[in-house]
Design a binder for these strands. Structure first.
Lengths: 224, 224
DNA sequence: GACTCTGTTGACACACTGTGCCACGGAGGG
DNA sequence: CCCTCCGTGGCACAGTGTGTCAACAGAGTC
């Protein structure tokens, strides 16, 4: 065990409260403890993002963050494995959402179309969000900070592998088939091109339009 | 200045020996000091790779490495910025080589062909090297170690941007044009697919063949 | 209310990393 | 011979991430 972790320290809670076995129940009423944890987590995250944006990533220490949030460094690390994690965890759900979207697409649909929809989930997550300005700031921070960029690319690499496996299954191919692997990689190439342009343009260009443009280019390669 | 760095600490020496101004001369006779530095650097690197391979990446500390190499931690950090760097620096020249290859391709050549040649440089670097077994071990180490994988992807991202700029210039487009960006990303998708399959197959599959297969798929998308 | 059980927190200690600084020592030039 | 240049190791220090422990708050039980 990784010492006494408050419910859901990293990525995702396998089971926040072992006694109350409400795991997969959709609308489980959140416990007080659970709401408290979420509150602390959010407080930490907001304080961190604030500081990182103002003072820069490298110039901000974990001690700065916890001091501003009025907590101890030990508590910080119970919620986030590292300073990078505060930022990267914001994208945590994205992989799941893309996976779900691809799974949900009709099996008869051409792969190019399904992948375009999966990628669009990510675009929507970033640009179509409640307040896109904040997401834009985060994406820009990631792209401009080498450590964060590296970690986000690595995470993408896992998503890509997941999507490839799903696509392979859909097409009735073995998991290591060539086409699903390449196809998903091309989809991420499109996604990254769109996202990066959206970010450097400060949100001026329409990422959805860029995505469609990219997939138009990919279409002949994705045809089977 | 980053304290007294022995000649060429990170990535590449801008000028190993400031007094002898022989920089761009191709076959400059290496100084004694320079050979000594190279020797220390190699000793450190070999010791590190040995330990990393045997004991695993996370289980090996920098102190372990320098103890085995009979040097101080301070000296280690004069040659390598971090433990990751020992591994990642092995690929340092690769970006330059790909850039050079792309630049050297005939301007009239179709972009797909030029990119395929650039990517092949990387494949040759890995698989066609003096002893491919060692390179294979390194590549496998990188792919299996999240931190290293992340850093190598980030590095690739820079190479991709470089290649895109070169391709744009070759095609007479502005640097931020859509086609060169997408085209280079697709090329790297092909490269990574081939490299990864080569690595997981323990060097059994032919990465060149895979590369050609990948570019065959990309060809219609890369056509202009 | 008292008691227990569970889970969160802060404090402390510790291992590891990366860097600035300084003093030592060898190599080479005056 | 002296003096400068440069690589090196030792030391100190800031920062990170983790194990451990005591304190404490909530919830449920009697």
């Amino acid at each position: 065990m990784a010492s006494s972790v408050p419910g859901s320290a990293p990525t995702r809670a396998p089971n926040p409260s072992p006694l109350l076995g409400r795991v997969s129940v959709a609308s489980a009423p959140p416990t007080l403890a659970e709401r408290k944890r979420r509150l602390v987590s959010e407080e930490l995250r907001e304080t961190a993002l604030q500081l990182l944006a103002v003072r820069g990533y490298d110039e901000t220490t974990v001690d700065d963050i916890v001091a501003a949030a009025g907590m101890s460094r030990r508590t910080f690390h119970r919620y986030y494995a590292s300073k990078e994690d505060v930022v990267i965890q914001l994208l945590a759900d994205l992989g799941d959402q893309m996976r779900d979207e691809l799974t949900a697409r009709p099996p008869a649909e051409p792969p190019a179309e399904s992948l375009r929809h999966a990628v669009t989930v990510a675009i929507d997550f970033c640009a179509g969000h409640h307040d896109a300005a904040k997401t834009l700031a985060v994406v820009r921070l990631i792209l401009r900070t080498p450590v964060l960029h590296a970690r986000s690319l690595e995470r993408q690499s896992r998503w890509q592998a997941d999507l490839a496996a799903i696509l392979a299954a859909r097409l009735g191919l073995e998991a290591e088939a060539f086409y699903p692997e390449m196809a998903t990689r091309l989809a991420f190439a499109a996604l990254n091109t769109a996202l990066e342009r959206w970010a450097v343009s400060e949100g001026q260009v329409d990422p959805l339009e860029l995505t469609e443009q990219a997939f138009a280019m990919l279409e002949p390669a994705l045809r089977r």
